[in-house]
Computed example of a mutant assay.
Amino acid sequence: MRRPLLWLLMGVMPALATAQDEPLRVAYQGDLLSLSQTQLTKREPLPASLDAPLGSLWKLFVYAWLVDTGAQEPAYECRGQSKEEVYCCSAGGRIERDQALVKSCGLYFEPARLGIAATDWRAYWQARQAPSWLLDLPAVQPATRVSVAELLSVLALLPAQEQMRRVLLDVVLNAADGNVVGELGGRLRVKTWSWLGDQDAQSRQGGFAGWSADGAPIWAGGRGTSQMVLRHYGQALASVLPTAWPADTGRCVEVGLFSKYPVSKVLVGDRVATSGPLRGDYRVEFANGNALDIHSDGELFLLNDKLVARLDREEYVAR
């Protein structure tokens, strides 16, 4: 009675082992990198023949179109009429452009909803010398296989990329596994993609494309979903990606400090500090009798006996 189950496990285990052993391929700065889950295993010139399914990366180009043409499209309202709304919002809710890109809400970016005409789309991208697969609006869909080298070339010159880089930092910040942001920090500004096609779950492909923190285009693809790629290869990606200061800083993050320990006063020397930005050395005295010496270069503020840090998201992630 147990033999069919044993045979099933014997068939599944090799497939799982193959998926774990298959390297992640990363196209970056003219090279094709192969990564194990811990390190770089191979570096070679990026071959012109390498292609991959576009997956949900098509949304990057619609987003760029909307920003560059000054569109003022309506938000997408979720009415519970499509199972795809799980990527957008709950029934009765709504989602706008930036969050739609981060959450990969395909319903938001549907050209028909946005009123994008195929002729206008072709003329727009022809003027930007885009590759042929980007000119035909009906072909800009997940199943279309595109040249990875051409994709990187488009990303390098893509309109609205600075705005997208700021928005897409949230993809890593919101990744399912909290270890991802710990390993990668703010090194990636990317849109994730996954593709199953007509195959079984064992052949699922996933990855990401976008930019590194310094603005260089990057693409990655491997076995499994995009979240699996980020989760399993974070350590290896961190070893090959630069830690340079970002080409564009993100939004400010405000963090309340010592919220569980009421502050009685903040001293600068023998004088009680007044509300406002803090610069220099200070001593914080708490209501419970404890004290702590701190230093601020202007990122800390005293607001009505509360200490607040205001940081760029990149610095917040790094800290």
Rank of each mutant, 00 (worst) to 15 (best):
M1I: 00
P4D: 00
L5D: 01
L6E: 09
W7F: 13
W7I: 14
L8W: 15
M13K: 04
A15L: 15
T18P: 00
A19R: 14
Q20A: 14
D21T: 06
P23L: 10
L24F: 13
L24C: 15
T38I: 00
R43K: 15
R43Y: 09
P45F: 00
L46C: 12
P47L: 00
P47S: 00
A48N: 04
L50P: 02
L54A: 08
G55I: 06
K59E: 10
Y63C: 06
A64D: 11
W65N: 09
L66G: 02
A71W: 03
Q72H: 12
E77F: 14
K83F: 15
S90D: 12
G92P: 03
G93Y: 06
R94S: 14
I95V: 11
D98A: 14
A100K: 05
L101H: 08
L101F: 09
C105H: 01
L107D: 01
Y108S: 13
F109C: 03
P111L: 04
R113I: 03
R113W: 04
L114M: 11
A117M: 00
A118H: 03
W121P: 09
Q126D: 01
R128P: 10
A130F: 04
A130C: 11
S132E: 02
W133D: 08
L134Y: 08
D136W: 04
L137D: 12
P138W: 06
V140G: 06
R145I: 05
V146N: 00
L151E: 12
L152A: 10
A156H: 09
L158F: 06
A160P: 05
M164F: 08
R165H: 05
R166H: 08
V167H: 06
V171D: 04
A176G: 13
D177V: 08
E183G: 00
L184H: 11
R189I: 09
T192P: 03
W195T: 04
L196R: 15
G197N: 07
Q199A: 15
D200G: 07
A201M: 07
Q202V: 15
S203R: 13
R204K: 14
R204Q: 15
Q205Y: 09
G206H: 04
A209S: 03
D214E: 14
A220C: 03
R223K: 14
Q227E: 14
M228G: 06
R231P: 08
G234E: 01
Q235N: 09
A236T: 09
L237S: 12
A244R: 03
A244P: 02
W245P: 11
A247V: 11
D248M: 00
C252H: 10
E254S: 11
G256F: 04
F258T: 07
Y261V: 14
P262W: 08
P262R: 05
L267Q: 12
V268C: 01
V272N: 07
G276Q: 02
L278M: 01
R279S: 07
D281T: 01
Y282R: 02
E285P: 05
E285F: 05
F286H: 07
N288S: 07
N288A: 08
L292K: 11
I294S: 04
H295V: 14
G298V: 10
L300E: 10
L303F: 03
L307Y: 05
L307Q: 06
L311E: 00
V317K: 09
A318H: 12
